[in-house]
Amino acid sequence: METTNTDVIQGTLDMLILKTVSLEPMHGFGITRRVEQVSRGVFKVNPGSLLTALNRLERAGWLDAEWRQTANSRRAKYYSLTRTGRKQLEEETSNWARRASAVARILKAEA
């Protein structure tokens, strides 16, 4: 594992979760691993924040949760994106794109 990994940027965890789950239903650790892999280890998800966020997103109606039996007869909670969740994801994505490009422009102008 890389040593330079950091916590997820403040305020983007929800968006990352929604995006990750939009591909297929996933459990908590699956989301963590996916985020770490796709970001090539740059972002590290804090388990406490992740589980709390999942709870919150489910409450907000953006995620559906379903308990499934795992291979070693444990219960696992799988999350999938709801329709309002998809809308929220689009909104947050475009929002993020706008802000990120704005930041990029500013940084370029300085250089």
Binding site: H27, G28, F29, T32, R33
Partner: peptide, 17 residues
Amino acid sequence: RDIADEVEHYLDEAAAS
């Protein structure tokens, strides 16, 4: 219990990885 199970499962998966 739901919360505990979810945390436990998370731990299992992390250990497995």
